Structure formats: structure tokens, C-alpha cells
Computed example of a mutant assay.
Amino acid sequence: MSECVLCGRTFSPKLSLARLVSLTKIKRSLICPQCFAGFEKITYANACWGCGRKQSGRTLCKDCRRWQQKGYELLENKACYVYDEPHMKKYFACYKFTGDYQLGTVFQTDMRQQLEWYLKRKWLLVVIPVDEETYQKRGFNQVCGLLPQVKLNSYLRHRQKMGRKKQSHKNRQERLQVPQPFSYVGPMDLKQQNILLLDDIYTTGSTLYHASALLHEHNSGKIKSVTLAR
């Protein structure tokens, strides 16, 4: 018997042959089938091509049109699941805010599948950082926990190390008005290397676009992004 970390319900994982040979399925037993069915998947055909927001069709959403108007090259973010639903919000509350590192295993396969196209083409993977205070309390970067066997580059640092107001505590307007939060610690010349930015959640896009702007300043090539949720 297992106990679901989201709802506390006890359940018996099915021990089929596929389950016995599939590490992914064993990891997903941290969450009961009822809760896992509550996660809302995003498909390519029904997502904004600029940010990955779930919608009807591939048209550009209002938020992405605003980024274009500001002169940004869209990141064409790909996301696996919808963030704004109870099961995913509870997942992140357990994973990030109570620091349950094991929950990172639940979506490792989903995230890895999103990277395959970029890995085959030798894109450089750059992770969005957490600030020093958060890292000391939690003990891990949540994005790294989703991709433990993938080489991720830490070319960005938070300028404000302690006392920073977290993104989750800001409203939409506050997030959009945040000045550049990062400093750059990677190679001074990226030599037109194509870069894939990795984060856990895409909300307004401001974090990813700040990161993108800094990388472009150091002669990057194309920049796209992948997140677990949108």
C-alpha cells in the first residue's frame, strides 16, 4: 500500500510486468491514480505557440502579443501541464514550498520528453536559478530535481540573495514590473550557441524573458524555453 502525498488516500499500485520494468511508473506511485488523473495535460495542437498556454488552436495569445509589442523575440515555450488547477497547485506546494524532493520524480519523464528535440541538436540547456535564501531553506533547485540526469548549465544568478519577495507572493502587475533580477556568470561570448531555458512554471513570462535578454547580451543564438506547467 502507498499513501498519496497530495490527498493522503491509501492505494495499491498495480504490479504489472510493465510496472516492474518501468522506473517511471514506480516513481509515479507517489501520487494516487485519482489525483494523477486530475493533472491537465497540454497538447501541441491546443496551445499558444508563443508561451504554451492551453487554449483552442495554435493562435498567439494576448500576453504573447504584448511581449512582441515590447520588441521581444517569443520563446515558443513548451509546457507539459496546466498550472491553474487544484492538483498541480497542490503538487507545487508540496514539492517547492515544503521541499519534498522526491516529488520531482513524478514528472521527470514528461520533462525529458520535451527536451529530446533540443538535445539531439546540441542546444545548450540553461536553468533558471533560485536565490541563495531559498536554496538554503529548500536544499535544491526545483528544476534540477525534475531533470537529475541531464546536464544543466547555471549561467544565471539572482542579484538579490536574501530577503527577495518570491514570485509566488507577487500579483501579476508586480511580476511584470520587476527589473532585471539576474546577473550573468557564464562564458562572456556564447558564440551564437542556441539555448533552451528551463523553468518549472511559466506565469507572466517575465522571468524567462529577463533571462533571455541577458543571454542575448552575451551573443547567444536562438533562445527557446520549456516549463513543466503553464
Rank of each mutant, 00 (worst) to 15 (best):
C80I: 08
Y83R: 02
Q68S: 14
K62I: 11
E85H: 07
N77P: 05
L75K: 04
G57N: 00
G57C: 01
K78F: 12
Y91S: 01
K96L: 08
Y95P: 03
Y91H: 05
Y91F: 14
P86R: 03
Q68K: 12
C94M: 15
K89P: 04
R66L: 14
E73N: 14
M88V: 04
D63E: 15
A79Y: 04
Y91M: 02
T59C: 10
N77C: 13
N77M: 07
K90D: 12
Q69F: 09
G57R: 00
Y95K: 08
C80S: 15
E76S: 13
C94I: 09
F92D: 03
R58C: 01
C80R: 07
D63L: 04
W67V: 08
C61K: 00
P86A: 08
L74Y: 02
E85V: 06
K89V: 12
F92Q: 05
S56K: 11
G57E: 00
Y83S: 00
L74G: 02
Y72T: 07
E76N: 15
E73D: 15
Y83M: 02
E73K: 14
K90L: 09
T59Y: 11
L60K: 03
T59N: 10
R58D: 02
Q55L: 01
F92L: 14
D63S: 08
Y72M: 10
G71H: 06
N77W: 06
C64G: 05
K62C: 08
Y91E: 00
C61T: 01
K89G: 07
E73G: 11
C94S: 12
F92S: 03
A93H: 13
R58Q: 04
K62M: 09
H87Y: 11
R66K: 15
R65T: 11
E76Q: 15
L75N: 08
E73V: 13
L75Y: 05
E73H: 15
H87C: 12
C80H: 05
Q68W: 06
D63R: 09
M88F: 03
T59I: 06
C80A: 15
A79C: 07
L60Y: 03
R65M: 14
E76R: 15
K89R: 12
A79L: 03
P86L: 05
E85A: 10
K90A: 13
C64I: 09
C64D: 02
Q55I: 00
V82H: 07
Y83G: 00
E85Q: 13
L75F: 07
G57W: 02
Q69W: 07
Y72H: 13
M88P: 05
Y83V: 00
L74A: 02
F92E: 04
K89A: 10
R65L: 14
E73P: 11
S56L: 10
N77E: 06
C80P: 01
L74I: 10
K54D: 03
L60N: 00
K70N: 10
F92A: 05
Y81A: 00
M88T: 12
Y81L: 14
K70P: 04
D84Q: 14
H87D: 13
K62Y: 13
T59W: 12
L75M: 05
R66P: 08
Q69G: 15
Y95C: 05
N77R: 05
S56A: 12
A79N: 08
N77H: 06
F92M: 11
W67E: 08
Y91K: 01
S56Y: 06
